[in-house]
């Protein structure tokens, strides 16, 4: 408990320090449309929090990005199992995944805008961000199940579904969870970036774009802080949800 309080105090002190730096910079620049101060930004954020539109915007953005995230997870896991079993699939998908990973997200957004309806772009971009990470880590997990474990399963007659669910999947879980956690933040950020370029009707990205267009820098900063806070909350929720699950427990 004491350790937690010390950690919290340390984080708070760091935030206060950087808030002061921000305030000093804002005072030095003295132009609110270039760099508004933290107090003005937090006031704006609080006023946004009092409107229903704010929550509706966040919810719609979240749903779009979550759809892409879930699709990426599902496709990544299924493809990883396929590639582990069929060499041809692995040979086909390995270079494709490398290309997806190496392509700048902005290029993808522009390309995808030409292909599909703009409201679906953020979900598709999130999907593309999640897919290669989950695919690679899950495949690594499948390939890391060691020979000794498989021999143990064989001699103790753990076969078929029991082997899959009781031995293989729990062995892969730490790899899958770490990939999911990393890709969650990435999907959120890339999804909002896609919204900024695709401009779906109601979205955080559209709000950011409008704030930039009308030089409402305070709004721009307020929405950015909202994105950061949501990202932190999502990561914490994910950690809480899977606490204790998939821990590696040093191999014996």
């Amino acid at each position: 408990m004491k350790k937690k309080l010390v950690t919290a105090a340390r984080i708070l002190a760091a935030l206060v320090f950087w808030g002061l730096v921000w305030q000093l910079c804002a005072a030095a620049v003295h132009l609110e449309f270039i760099l508004p101060g933290p107090i003005a930004v937090f006031r704006r954020l609080l006023s946004l929090c009092r409107t229903a539109d704010f929550y509706q915007t966040i919810l719609l953005s979240f749903l779009r990005i979550a759809a892409g995230f879930c699709g990426g997870i599902l496709a990544g896991v299924l493809l990883a199992f396929g590639c582990a079993k069929v060499r041809l699939l692995d040979a086909l998908f390995s270079p494709l995944m490398a290309i997806i990973r190496a392509t700048p997200v902005a290029s993808f957004i522009i390309l995808v805008l030409l292909w599909i309806e703009k409201g679906r772009v953020p979900a598709f971009i999130s999907f593309l961000m999640v897919l290669p990470i989950v695919w690679q880590n899950t495949l690594l997990g499948i390939r890391s199940i060691d020979r000794q474990t498989l021999e143990m399963a064989k001699v103790f007659q753990i076969t078929g579904k029991r082997k899959l669910f009781k031995v293989e999947l729990p062995s892969i879980l730490p790899y899958f969870l770490s990939a999911s956690k990393v890709s969650l933040g990435l999907a959120w950020k890339a999804g909002v970036a896609a919204e900024v370029l695709a401009l779906p009707k109601v979205s955080i990205g559209t709000m950011i774009y409008n704030a930039k267009l009308y030089l409402e820098s305070t709004d721009l900063y307020a929405w950015t802080i909202a994105i950061i806070l949501i990202s932190v909350v999502l990561e914490k929720l994910f950690s809480l949800l899977f606490r204790g699950k998939g821990e590696s427990h040093a191999a014996n």
Partner: peptide, 8 residues
């Protein structure tokens, strides 16, 4: 080696 599954 013991070959116990570490997650159980």
């Amino acid at each position: 080696e013991a070959r116990l599954l570490p997650f159980y």
